[in-house]
Every structure is written in C-alpha cells, then in structure tokens.
Amino acid sequence: MLDATEQFINGLMFGCLYALIGGGFTILFGVMRRFNMAYGSTIMAGAYVALVPVYLFRAPAWLMVLTGIAAAVLVGLLVEFCCFRFIKKGHELAPLMTTIGMLIVINEAIVHATDAVGLKYPSPFGDVALELGQFLVRRDYLAVLVAGVVCFTLIFLLLYRTRFGRAMRAVAERPEAAQILGVSVRRVNVLTFVLTSALAGVIGFFAAVSVGSARPDMAFFVTGKGLVVMVLGGLGSLPGAIVGGLVLGVLEFEATWFLGATYRDILAFVILFLVLVFRPQGLVGTRTT
C-alpha cells in the first residue's frame, strides 16, 4: 500500500491548489454574496501573462509570479467594473450572468491570441522528484503546498489582524451595519477584488507549473473545481474551502491510483452530488468567513 500512501501525500499537496481556488471563490462570495464566474478566467489570464517575461528573457520564477499577480489584478478590476459596479442592489443573480459573459470574453481573447494552442510552461522547481525517506515527492507539488500554506497564512492574518480585514468581516456579515459604522462598502468590495485577483495570479502560476502548460481550457477546469470545493466545504466558509480542497485532492489522486486516470475528473462531480444530497451544509458546515 506504499503507493496508495504516496498518492495520499500527493493528493494533499495538490489539494492545496484546489483549496486556494475554492478560497478565492469563497472570499468574494463571503464579502459580496455574489458568484464571480469569471474567476477561473482571471486565474487563466494570470497563468498566460506570467509567461511573457519568460519569452523576453530568462525570467526567474518569482518574477513570473509577480507578473501573473499584476495581470490578474488588472483583469479582476476589469471584472469588478464591468460586471459588478453598476448592478443595482437587489439583483443578486445579475452578476452571475455578467461574469459568465466576461468568462467567455477573456477565454476567447486568449484563444485568439494563442491560436488555441497550449503554451509549454517552464518547470522552475526542477523535474527530478525529491526522495523523502521511502516516498518520491514531486518538487512542483511541494511548491504548491508551500504556496498554499503561505497564502492562507497571509489571508488569515489579513482577515483577523488588520483594520481592512475587520472591515471585510463586518461587510460580509452585515453590510448595512458596517456602513453605519463608517465603512465604505464599495471600497471593501473593490479591495476584495484586488485581494482575490492577486490570489488568482498565484494560483494561475502554480496550476500551470504543475500541469506543465497553460491551456485555454484551464478556466473551465478551474471553475469546475472551485465551485465543487466551495460547496464541498460549505458555501462562504474559508476553513471549509481548505478542507474541501484537500479532500478533493486526496480523493482524486486515490481514484487515479485505484480506478485509473479517466475517472479523475468525473469524481469531483460525483462527490458534489453526494455532498449536496447527504450534507448540503458542506463538510465543515458553519458559515464563517
């Protein structure tokens, strides 16, 4: 069973990526009570633009990440402006439609710019697996794990240790009460977009690194996983997104091992179905943001 254990470890590490994707969806949903369906394409835009410095010169990984973050933040602000800012209060479903439109626009833009051909991604963490005792561990998965831990630590510090974080939590629970305490809801919304989009830049880079390429179907893939993780953990719960992401990662890797790779992508939706039927409040089930 050594290999099943190895798959478990790999699944946990890769699950950090799912947790980050779910976390991005969850933070925005928690603060604004709106779905941003263009989040997957924000991640994809980050992954593609992060390649630009590589084409120009031998860019180091950190420069790629920063470029990806910058691009994703710009795309995120565009999404906020086009799809959220002018929607009146009380039209909760309107952004669902506007962001699906934006998802299509960004995807098409990338397809046209790259002739729909996937772009090979560098492997800045090396291709040789790391030997940890009896286990072989992929270095890029290890990098994903580190990225996950670092990002979530920063997010929780921001939410619970800063002035902006407490304003975010206040707006998430009662926007009208936050407002009467002098918090600008619009400012919190825009900064939430900046935060989640920066996270999208990080996700885009690590997702493309661990897959080995940036492909135009990435947004679709990422959106599917993100929504599954979000519901799996419990809508609006950040700890839930972490648990949901790790669970999905492990289950996918075990399914690949025991059932074969073709079952991997259908598994997410089977789990989603089961959770919705038997535990609709999600695995963690408390509504905290």
Binding site: E173, R174, I180, T288
Partner: peptide, 23 residues
C-alpha cells in the same frame, strides 16, 4: 454615501438589532 455621513459625525442604532454575531 452613508460612510461619509458617519465620518462627519452621525451615529445610529437600529430598531431590529444588527450586531456582528460572529464577533
């Protein structure tokens, strides 16, 4: 906007209590 009015010096409580229950 409300937050600007608040910063000028008007505070308010609500008829139906609206506290942050998670804090």
């Amino acid at each position: 906007p409300t937050h600007e009015i608040v910063r000028r010096g008007i505070g308010r409580t609500f008829q139906n209590i609206r506290l942050f229950t998670r804090m």
